[in-house]
Amino acid sequence: MITNLVLATTLALAPSPGFSWSVQPSGPKGPTGRDYFSYSAAPGDTIKDTVGVTNRSSEKMTFKVYATDAFNTADGSFALLTADKKPDDVGSWISLTKRTFTVKPGKRVDVPFTVKVPENAAPGDHSGGVLAAVTQQETTGDGQKVNVDRRVAARLHLRVNGPTTTALKVDRITASHDGPIVGDRTVKVSYRVTNTGNIRLTANAKVYTEALFTWPQGAAAEREIPELLPGSSYTFTDEITGVLPAGPLKASVRLTPSDPGGLSPARIDPTTRSITFWAVPWVVLGAAVVIALLLIRRRRPARR
């Protein structure tokens, strides 16, 4: 089965015209204006909520509504397990009394669901999604028939009460440079960021280089680190231009984390990781060698 997933909190269009639907947090009186599902609960708690599925197509559609777990892909994107994989985290805590719904064009169905937090649930963030899927049979270019599972989902984040750890780790940092023999160079810094805590985090990253005596080199690069779920990693590469070949240089990555859920009462401390590398000043070394040879020649005793 081929899966095509669109994460959405508002209208999400499927690939073909006239074939679209939306999934969003709702309530007994309809959509509540929430961007996604967000809860804070203790182990053993029960939460009741509603998801709205709106058919924005020109014909009636049958949806399969269910929940599953989230993860970060290799490029850092938020994604949900495919339909053939069984959730073992927050997706498995969610139950619906009914899972299949046929909705007329332009109409919405509000589907109640229950979240039962296990007594032994680990403290911290647990992320997933509630989605509506439509399976259709399509024909490929070579005439084969395949089932295409298209899904639209609303994100769900649940923070279980208890001790939280907020930590982003920078590792696998490397630095390389290129440029002319004479003049400034460009330094490329690659680094992996891992969320080693138990809550989801974003961060501002500042990447910079320094020569001896903390002499700044080049223009620092900055980027926003996308939301990383606990245990997830992503590798970034940033460029610093205008760096002088000043011999031993230090490349540093400074992360200032933040809690996108806004639930952490305490300030999250920044973290910095550095690496030392060489940008050989060939012109300076060449001039020094020439001067040394001239001095040696002048000091050499003249032959009789």
Rank of each mutant, 00 (worst) to 15 (best):
G106I: 06
D110T: 03
V111N: 11
P112Q: 08
F113C: 12
F113Q: 11
V115S: 10
V115P: 10
V115H: 09
V117W: 06
P118F: 05
P118Y: 04
E119M: 09
A121M: 07
A121R: 07
A122Y: 02
P123S: 14
D125A: 15
S127H: 14
V130P: 06
V130F: 06
L131S: 15
A133G: 02
A133L: 10
A133D: 01
A133Y: 00
V134G: 00
T135L: 06
Q136P: 00
Q136V: 15
Q136H: 03
Q137F: 09
Q137K: 14
Q137V: 13
E138F: 09
E138D: 09
T139C: 00
T140I: 02
G141T: 05
G141P: 03
G143H: 03
G143I: 06
K145W: 00
V148A: 09
D149Q: 12
R151K: 09
V152N: 11
V152F: 02
A153I: 02
A154C: 11
A154K: 01
R155T: 03
L156H: 12
H157S: 14
H157T: 12
R159C: 03
V160R: 07
V160S: 03
V160P: 04
V160Q: 04
N161F: 03
N161A: 15
G162A: 10
P163Y: 02
P163N: 10
P163H: 04
P163A: 10
P163M: 05
T164Y: 04
T165R: 13
A167P: 00
A167Y: 08
L168Y: 08
K169A: 11
K169W: 03
D171N: 15
R172S: 15
R172Q: 15
I173T: 13
A175Y: 12
S176A: 15
H177I: 01
D178G: 13
G179S: 01
P180Q: 14
P180N: 13
V182D: 08
V182R: 09
V182F: 10
G183W: 04
D184G: 13
D184W: 01
R185E: 07
T186E: 13
T186H: 08
T186V: 14
V187D: 08
S190G: 06
S190H: 01
S190R: 11
